[in-house]
Amino acid sequence: MALLSKKDTNLILDPLADNNPITIQVLGICSALAITAELKASVVMAVSVMFVLAMGNVAISLLRNVIPSKIRIIVQLVVVATLVIIVDQVLKAFAYELSKTLSVFVGLIITNCIIMGRFEAFALGNGPWKSFLDGIGNAAGYGIILVIVGFFRELLGSGTLFGFKVLGDPVTKTGLYSIGYENNGFMIIPPAALIVVGIIIWVQRSRNRSLIEEA
């Protein structure tokens, strides 16, 4: 018996493209944009969200028959907050510099709409294993957009990737800079993230025209 049935595979693959949490479901944009000026921060954010979402989905799915529906929001918030505290403490212990860069945005994973959205829409009605896969899939879909945005913003804005100067040194004029290339400072300021995501949506919907919204 295969570990993943076809349905299970779809749970992971769907959110990566045609049902992407950011570009299609419009969830989790809040924290997605503010930290994407550097690729490293984007990757760490994506991994943290994946941990919180997968574990939280499992926990909620295990508790789904016990939680009274009236107070489910508060129960969900407590589960997420606990997991986020774990992430925050781990980051502070092992990657202090990075946790300073992310600052309050680690805490804001709690109110990341993807997490509440998936709890409500999936974990409350499905078993733990499926919920786990759904969590991984959706967090990966979120992470992909984060990494794409982070890649373009860091490459075009600072000419680096993960802090390595891939385009040469702008001060000593090596690499691309020797033929007059300049960094685009516009990509570093916050509004650029919105425009990059807008362009990703544009490209995605041009390729798959069934996603186009009615005006």
């Binding site: 425009i195 544009w202 005006a215």
Partner: peptide, 23 residues
Amino acid sequence: VPAPLRGLGITFIITGLMGIGFQ
């Protein structure tokens, strides 16, 4: 608005432009 940008896409881009204004 170009069809693929309708709705969400154009809203993102407008917000970006407004953000530049607020800068």
